[in-house]
Design a protein around this nucleic acid. Structure first.
Lengths: 250, 250
DNA sequence: CGATGACTTGACTGCTGTCAACGTGCGTGG
DNA sequence: CCACGCACGTTGACAGCAGTCAAGTCATCG
């Protein structure tokens, strides 16, 4: 019977990749869990078929029943004000968990949509909650991930609260570079999956400002930019700029 | 607010107030726990003696070993940039948990200091973690509180990302009003425990701008302000302003 | 090949920060 | 009790960063 192991019957089956074989398990929920625990977790995770660019994972106000782990691709989360304007709250890359902000009220306070073809794992929350009661490793990692989310948001408040436009963009690029490096991609060359408008919206800047800064950073030799493609030429200088040397006059 | 210096030596004994007798237990960790669970939680909580205005609960980089629940008073959390400038990330009022952002790295990413005489409960994290494995009610509430923290931070990103100065201050006042109301205080009359500079820092505005807006709001009849004392006269108008009607021109 | 959307660049405006002076309340010490 | 110092807050003048409006360029796709 169990010869179906290797000779996969249909492609749909290929979607199922156990957590222990997932290259992201050191970033994601599995971190710190042993073999037996991993199997329990594997059982409740639903591997979804890929979502296309522009598709929503969920809308604002949708009932919350699962958190999502990104396996590949990227997404953005955003709120909308009454006048219909959209404010982007964050971008999501492989290994990151989405929807943790919905636990409190049982409803998603933000919408999330894919920036490109993207695949995710869905983890039903009621099962995650009860399973985290049984598995200390899972519980600790879940708390760590939520805690990290909180401190990331706090970092973003610093960016928005007191940094100038060029400091914001530099911080954004450094942040992307670091996130890609963690996932084994190049930290100096990457493609932006979001538009200039998205970046500006996220950073609290007009898209024209973002565009101007990209060209200025390029003129200054900090980066090379070619539409969506970014190459970081002077990481250290960019990092210093992001760090927030407010000139000196204080 | 600062009725400071009420040095009651005898009250030191009265510091021990069981969670079930605490007026904040519907906001704090105890929510959703039964009698037996509450007793378990009570056993691990340390009631600390009051901290004075300006005292630190912890500094940036301090080892993390406990989260703190505010019982009375208020505090601010802040980061410091390399040039020594301080960025306030949040204010804390009774019933709120402090330090959840430190779980991820085991070190406090922010410092927290009292704005007035303040008393807190300390909850050792290792015990909280293991206890939350045994008590489903505690685990759920802890996750809810962390989730709420995340969505609050996201709301703040919206404020900082796209609101104008007057919208920010209006949002701040409405937020305070709602928080006080939840705690059984007046939602229309209260004292600010933080300075104009703190408010401006938090909202990403110069303190002069905050001062000017207070006087303008008063001229417009929205509020009455007298040093630290605030009376909200037109809640609805203030709310509408906070909501973010970007004039109309869009 | 034209349409569409994304991006770039320029000109101008205005909100808000900066600098500066002054007012106000409070605690300390004579 | 009063004088003083100091921190905090208010108000004004000015300037600059970044937003808005607008025109034009570029890439992609049907």
């Amino acid at each position: 019977m169990s010869q179906a192991r290797q000779t996969n019957i249909i492609n749909l089956r290929a979607i199922r990749v156990a957590c222990q074989e997932c290259s992201l398990n050191t970033l994601c929920l599995p971190l710190g869990m042993d073999q037996a625990e991993l199997n329990r977790l594997d059982d409740i995770i639903e591997r979804k078929s890929p979502v296309n660019r522009g598709d929503h994972l969920f809308q604002i106000g949708d009932d919350f029943h699962a958190v999502y782990a990104v396996r590949s691709g990227s997404l953005k989360s955003y709120a909308t004000t009454e006048n219909g304007h959209e404010q982007i709250i964050g971008f999501h890359f492989p290994g990151e968990l989405i929807g943790l902000d919905a636990i409190a009220e049982g409803v998603h306070p933000l919408a999330t949509r894919a920036l490109e073809t993207t695949s995710v794992c869905a983890i039903p929350y009621d099962q995650l909650d009860s399973l985290s009661g049984e598995l200390p490793g899972l519980r600790s990692q879940l708390l760590r991930l939520m805690s990290r989310e909180i401190s990331h948001d706090e970092q973003n408040m610093i960016i928005l609260g007191q940094k100038s436009a060029d400091e914001r963009l530099a911080t954004f690029l450094i942040g992307l570079s670091n996130r890609f490096a963690l996932r084994g991609f190049s930290s100096t060359e990457f493609n932006l999956s979001m538009s200039r408008g998205d970046i500006g919206n996220y950073l609290g800047l007009a898209l024209e400002t973002v565009s101007r800064l990209f060209t200025r950073f390029q003129q200054d030799g900090l980066i090379r930019v070619e539409r969506k493609f970014i190459e970081i030429l002077e990481y250290d200088q960019l990092y210093a700029l992001a760090g927030g040397e407010h000139s000196d006059h204080s």
